[in-house]
């Protein structure tokens, strides 16, 4: 029984575990980012890269990738993020720009530099973007 359960869990992990990629535009000034840097960027604690203000993109509330990103990379719950942004607003910080779709995301990445967002592996295939960080979506 135990073995079956472990197998099922592993299988499930295999099923739901997705790779989430932090991607920047093709001319993003850095090749790789640390998780701390990503957090700083997405929490508007870091605005500029190489003197340019970064366009930081997020998906809409309850988008699976966003849930994954907030949980696994930002390591914050939605509630704590709401609380954070409520306070941060009064300090002049702004949450990332919301994009409705991955097409939108990639369009922004094509047109705005520097810009950063996140996506899944499939969507990122054949796109002219820089992969700055990888992580898995562990639920």
């Amino acid at each position: 029984m135990q073995r079956i359960m472990i197998t099922c869990l592993l299988f499930m992990q295999l099923l739901v575990a997705e790779e989430i990629l932090i991607i920047g535009d093709k001319n993003f000034p850095k090749e790789k980012l640390t998780s701390a840097e990503i957090k700083a960027i997405f929490l508007d604690k870091k605005h500029f890269f190489g003197g340019e203000k970064i366009l930081v993109m997020n998906y809409e509330f309850n988008h699976p990738l966003r849930i994954c990103f907030e949980k696994n990379i930002l390591e914050k719950t939605q509630r704590s993020l709401e609380k954070y942004w409520r306070k941060a607003y009064y300090h002049g910080k702004r949450p990332p720009k919301i994009v409705k779709s991955t097409e939108m995301l990639f369009s922004y990445l094509d047109n705005v530099q520097p810009s950063i967002g996140y996506s899944d592996t499939n969507s990122t295939k054949n796109k002219e973007v820089k992969i700055l960080y990888k992580s898995e979506c562990l639920f």
């Binding site: 409705k100 779709s101 097409e103 939108m104 369009s107 922004y108 094509d110 047109n111 705005v112």
Partner: peptide
């Protein structure tokens, strides 16, 4: 979205 030609 002007930047992305109003895709959505």
């Amino acid at each position: 979205d002007v930047l992305v030609n109003d895709i959505d």
